[in-house]
């Protein structure tokens, strides 16, 4: 009985828990507040979409989860282990359970190594000594991502298109059978015609390998297509988190509403609404006081400048960091 309870607790425990993460870095003597006090949960088997404008800290957050960027404060709990407290070998072992897929698939592959070596590299690093076993694993994973292993393994990255390179990157990320994959804008650099293929492949791989995904993107349509839940980020802070359908239907944060309005409607008679997109986002070097969105928000008042809004539940499963939510 006790064991069952413990098991249930294990299952409901989020795979990744980010607690009050702060990432800052110095540029020319000034501090860039890239990620400020972000808390997130990602359940096992879930896909969390992370959206926001360029430079809002999405990618930094993804890399800080893997400890590729040093966090100033906060915790990253992966399967109960605090990654921010880990160093050296322990961290390297834990990183093997978390993989990363990048925006630029061609730059992600070493131009002077053969595809077979690139995909086998994770196995070598994690200590799989038997070359036959490695070859078999590389074969299997390349076939799984839709490439013919026999044709591919002896080639160099420049012989492939962007979509094929992204398939190779996905194969490399999956060869160790990880639990969690961070996709950092995996389709933004690809042709529109290839995007759907790669997104379908990611879905397929998620089912096949039982993955949990953090899907970072600035394209709302892409995020809507793949995510179970969506988190919206603005200037280093989380604005809103909620189930995908619900968030797209009834946004609570004015910024989410603004983003949704900015999606072009495929109808030439519909005029774009011009009133909402006010100005550029402020610099993350000197973010506005209180709510960071207040400088562009139609609902902002004195309270927004004085008080930082906390993430509060506004509907079942949906929470927003706003003093004047839309619902």
């Amino acid at each position: 009985m006790m064991q069952q309870l413990a098991m249930q607790q294990m299952a409901s425990e989020p795979l990744l828990k980010v607690e009050n993460l702060v990432v800052e870095y110095a540029v020319g003597g000034r501090t860039v507040h890239a990620v400020s006090d972000v808390s997130l949960d990602i359940a096992r088997g879930e896909t969390l979409g992370l959206v926001g404008e360029s430079g809002c800290g999405k990618s930094t957050l993804g890399r800080a989860v893997l400890q590729l960027r040093q966090a100033v404060s906060g915790k990253v709990l992966f399967d109960g282990h605090d990654l921010t407290a880990m160093h050296g070998d322990a961290l390297r072992r834990m990183r093997r359970r978390v993989q990363l897929i990048f925006q630029d698939p061609i730059a992600s592959l070493n131009p002077r190594r053969r595809i077979g070596d690139i995909v086998a590299e994770p196995l070598v690093i994690s200590g799989v000594k038997d070359p036959d076993k490695r070859r078999q694993a590389v074969h299997d994973v390349l076939a799984a991502v839709g490439l013919d292993p026999a044709l591919v393994v002896n080639r160099l990255p420049h012989e492939f298109s962007g979509g094929q390179c992204q398939r190779i990157c996905i194969a490399r990320a999956l060869v160790l059978n990880p639990d969690f994959v961070i996709c950092d804008e995996p389709v933004s650099a690809l042709d529109v015609s290839i995007r759907a293929q790669i997104l379908n492949l990611l879905e397929e791989m998620k089912a096949r390998y039982g993955l949990t995904l953090l899907f970072i993107a600035h394209d709302l349509a892409v995020v809507k297509a793949v995510s179970d839940r969506v988190a919206v980020m603005y200037l280093g802070r989380l604005c809103e988190v909620g189930p995908s359908e619900q968030l797209f239907a009834t946004p609570a944060h004015p910024y989410t509403a603004l983003l949704l309005e900015a999606i072009p409607v495929p109808d030439p008679d519909v005029r774009p609404t011009e009133s909402v997109a006010v100005g550029e986002p402020p610099s993350p070097i000197a973010p506005p006081s209180g709510c960071r969105f207040r400088t562009r928000c139609p609902r902002a008042d004195a309270r927004c400048a004085a008080e930082v809004p906390e993430l509060r539940t506004v509907a079942p499963g949906q929470s927003a960091a706003c003093h004047h939510p839309l619902i």
Partner: peptide, 9 residues
């Protein structure tokens, strides 16, 4: 690809 190698441990 260097960051990828770091991420691989």
């Amino acid at each position: 690809f260097v960051i990828a190698a770091q991420a691989l441990g």
